[in-house]
């Protein structure tokens, strides 16, 4: 590996981490604003113009709070929990193609950190490790509500991982590749996968809500039943890590949805305008972020519209409805390709 590429990748990695953190930070602000607007309120508007400095104020508050580790908690694991949650949330951004190829001084640089040929599976692996953050944190708190929350989180995430994986299979059948970069490249020119896999998209979307523990699937932390669930005993920045990890997960899920089903950095009619390739790449990245923001908004929109599921309804939906639907989707897609390739 030559030095320029090495430096470029390092810088790009830092940029992605920074962007992830900033987007997650402003998602907290966005969430409060969206919630307020949907309830005919104004939302935070005191810190800075339109309350734009609110996330910074919240962050300072989080840092200043007293750090409490309960006496009966398992200290080692208590600290490990939020660390895992944060780390796995941040790691997923590595495989997402944030843009096309940018040419600087005659050299081509890809706007993706690692083009794994099993990109989707990598995302799944990170999600499945992310469960540990919640489970370990909830158990180590030595609090019954935290334990209940973590058990709910674990069983919910395992259940919906299955349906999510199966919904992806139909997509892989159409694209014939597991590499996210290739999947995006195939969707060039409005051949977005959502038109070919509407059912798979719907299942994936529902599962994404469940995997990120967002409403209406926020049972692991429902205040009315569990006083905050797995992070009941957490305070200060450890709590901040859990909350932050949730928003990072939301950002990454939105990015994955946009990549897999909505053409990633592709935008319609880009070839007809006739811009320079670098401009096309930058515009594509901009457009990609617009898609991501739309999905983040969708996450919030749903959260402030739908009430929380009951636990048995959640399990019924996952195992008895989404799983069979996903299997049906696979069979239908397979049959379609089998018969079209015969003729």
């Amino acid at each position: 590996m030559d030095l320029t590429l090495y430096i470029y990748k390092t810088i790009f990695l830092f940029i992605i981490l920074l962007v992830t953190l900033v987007v997650a930070m402003y998602s907290t602000y966005g969430e409060r604003k969206v919630a307020a607007f949907m309830q005919d309120r104004r939302g935070p508007n005191r810190a800075g113009p339109f309350g734009l400095l609110q996330p910074i104020a919240d962050g300072v508050k989080m840092f200043m709070k007293e750090e409490i580790i309960p006496l009966s908690a398992n200290k080692k694991l208590f600290i490990l929990g939020p660390s895992i949650a944060m780390t796995t949330a941040m790691l997923t951004g590595v495989v997402i193609p944030w843009g096309g190829i940018i040419t600087i001084a005659g050299r081509e640089f890809s706007m993706q950190i690692a083009d794994l040929n099993i990109g989707i599976l990598y995302v799944f692996a990170m999600v499945s490790i992310g469960v540990y953050g919640i489970m370990i944190g909830g158990w180590a708190s030595n609090n019954k509500y935290a334990l209940l929350g973590s058990i709910r989180a674990a069983s919910q995430m395992i259940s919906y991982e299955l349906a999510m994986g199966l919904s992806i299979v139909g997509l892989i059948l159409t694209t014939g590749s597991l590499s996210l970069n290739e999947i995006v490249a195939q969707q060039h020119g409005m051949h977005w996968n959502v038109f070919y896999q509407p059912l798979g998209f719907l299942i994936f979307l529902v599962c994404a809500f469940a995997e990120t523990n967002r409403a209406p699937f926020d049972l692991p932390e429902c205040e009315t039943e569990l006083i905050g669930g797995y992070h009941t005993e957490y305070s200060s920045m450890k709590l901040g890590f859990y909350l932050f990890a949730e928003y990072i997960n939301m950002f990454i899920s939105s990015a994955v949805i946009a990549t897999l089903y909505f053409g990633g950095y592709n935008m319609p009619f880009i070839d007809q305008i006739g811009l320079s390739p670098n401009m096309v790449t930058l515009l594509g990245t901009f457009f990609f972020f617009m898609k991501i923001f739309f999905f983040i908004f969708l996450f919030m929109w749903i959260r402030w519209t739908l009430p929380r599921f009951r636990y048995d309804q959640l399990m019924n939906l996952g195992w008895k409805k989404l799983m069979p639907l996903a299997i049906f989707n696979i069979m239908a897609t397979g049959a379609y390709y089998y018969f079209t390739e015969l003729t």
Partner: peptide, 25 residues
């Protein structure tokens, strides 16, 4: 890479979660 990722998904992501689940309970 495929084997590595499947190993993570199946063993660390699914089987060990169930182990942890049982031990926690």
């Amino acid at each position: 890479q495929f084997l590595a990722v499947v190993h993570v998904i199946v063993y660390t992501g699914a089987i060990m979660v169930l182990f942890l689940f049982v031990i926690m309970l």
